[in-house]
């Protein structure tokens, strides 16, 4: 286990401090900053939701992205089965959240946003 990381309650494999340092989380935050022109005001909330998702699937952020892609000659490829797996996990996670359908979808979209900004193509449905 890497320094600063440990198993949290609920099975999360990353501490809060280590979590923000993960390369894929940094990529996500940078992507959001680029998209919005500044870091979203609710970034801390988003990170918290995403950390809950990591606990939900018992994976570190970098591991999620690593699982969903593979290097081949000529570039990167998305692993379809893993992408589908996480897409379903996001739906499950979303359904497990408190609040109305719109609030639940918002939580799912936080995770989808993490995937999207790390190059894993993903779409949510229309809700709310």
């Amino acid at each position: 286990m890497e320094e600063g990381r440990g198993k949290e309650e609920g099975g999360a494999a990353v501490t809060k401090a280590g979590f923000s340092d993960a390369a894929t989380v940094r990529t996500w935050v940078d992507g959001l900053r680029e998209q919005w022109g500044e870091e979203p005001g609710d970034m801390a909330d988003r990170l918290e939701v995403f950390q809950r998702f990591c606990a939900f699937v018992e994976r570190e952020p970098d591991a999620i992205i690593e699982e969903c892609s593979r290097e081949v000659e000529g570039g990167k490829r998305i692993r379809i089965k893993k992408r589908r797996f996480y897409s379903e996990k996001i739906d499950e996670f979303q359904a497990s959240m408190d609040g109305d359908a719109r609030a639940q979808a918002r939580a799912g979209n936080v995770v989808r946003s993490f995937m999207i900004h790390n190059g894993i193509f993903m779409q949510g449905g229309v809700s709310g």
Partner: peptide, 16 residues
Amino acid sequence: RRQEIMQLAERLNLPM
């Protein structure tokens, strides 16, 4: 455009 996409994402509840 950026503002428009943000508003659409908010209204239709889409990821950004």
